[in-house]
Simulated assay, not measured.
Amino acid sequence: MESRCQYTGVWTEAAFWMYLFVRSVADIFPTTAVALIDAAVVIATRETSCGRGDVGRQLAFGSLGFALLGPLTGYLSTLTSNIGPAYWLPFVLHAVLMILAAIIALSADGMPLSPPEWWWHTRSGMLALPMSAVKRYSSETVALIFVLLVMGTFWSAMDSYLPLHLQILGGDELSIGVAMTVGAIPAFLFLWKSEHLVDYCGHSNLLITAFTMYIIRFTGLSLVSDPWWSLISEALEVFTLGIMWVTTILYLRHLVPRHLTVTAQAWPVIAHFCIGRCLGSVIGAYINLGDEDIVQSLRFVFRCMAVAAAIVASLYFVLYHGILKPRCHAHTIQSSRQPSTIVQAMNGNGNYAPLRVYHNGMGRKGQFRY
């Protein structure tokens, strides 16, 4: 839709800086909300004597809302395009839904966010996950944050300019809305059983899969000539955003001690949606600068990002499986070798073995460290 602003010159520059200021301030709150929601979900699905919930099932409903509201908003925008300013309906719906979410958060005092029942384990004895674990797994944590920063750069370079690319190719609000949200539909199905998927495939393998899917997505977008063909590429967003994000949440839940849960869940938001998002937008804008053929320029950006994703995926595979994994695996084996007298001292019959449940037993949790 063409802009209805008829002013140019000084007013255009002032409008840009005002929008940049308002957008920068406004983005503080959604990103903070994402970090707090992730932490709340991790705590709410905590381990108790009655079992535990599934993180992916909580996030699946967010994916379902994302899948429904995108096409719906695009369709309603085509019907109301002559009523008000350009894209007024998405802004109104966004404000209404944010207010509704805030009301629910304020009134939902029954959410199970209290400390877990076995919290006393982390406060005494050698069964706790001590603060030394932060240093022990610091290299693995730093590598994960760097991977998220790179993925945020790829995501922003694609997400920031994809609507423009599809619009130039002849897409309307409906086709763009469907293309931007089609990946959320399979994401709902995968997230429903995501913890089992992560347990089976492993964190690093899913992250490498996300990089591989970025290669395919960027390559596909550089070749499409019709907006509807982009649906094939956008459907793969289930791997580059949905599964990648729940993998990150679960990964950090096991790397960082329990009392640092909120801080740990804020790290991926900062790396992916703040720093990475900024870098991706700037890199895409810099490559497009001064090119009159926007379509060819955007295709060149997508090709460059496909090559970069291939390089980063190869480096991460070599560094993780060649350096980080053997080192962290050695630490895990060393920390799990505890004298049997420690376990027997807590329970005279010698049958109580929380190390099997919370650390490195062969139960459902596998290699997870609690």
Rank of each mutant, 00 (worst) to 15 (best):
T341K: 11
L221C: 04
I168Q: 09
V25N: 10
L197G: 01
S24G: 14
Y320N: 12
W228A: 04
V295R: 07
L191C: 05
G152V: 09
E2K: 14
Q338S: 10
E140A: 15
V295P: 03
T45C: 15
V142W: 10
S297K: 10
L207V: 15
P85L: 13
A313S: 13
L166A: 00
C304F: 08
F146A: 10
H121Q: 14
L241I: 05
F273T: 08
I243F: 05
G280L: 01
L324K: 03
A266L: 02
V262Q: 12
E237F: 13
G62R: 01
S24V: 11
L250V: 07
F29W: 14
V41Y: 04
L252K: 05
L69R: 02
M346A: 10
G322I: 06
V10I: 13
T45H: 06
H196P: 00
A33D: 11
M213I: 09
W119P: 00
S139L: 14
L279N: 03
P339Y: 11
A143D: 01
D226R: 13
V96H: 02
E234N: 10
V282S: 02
L319Y: 15
S156W: 08
R23F: 14
I28K: 07
V256L: 02
S204M: 14
F66R: 06
E237P: 00
M111F: 11
E195Q: 12
T219D: 06
I294F: 10
G170I: 06
G70F: 03
T12A: 15
Y286G: 07
W11G: 00
S156R: 08
T122K: 03
T261N: 15
F61Q: 08
M362S: 13
H254N: 13
T153V: 14
G361V: 06
G276S: 09
V262I: 11
P326S: 10
S138Y: 10
W192M: 11
A143F: 12
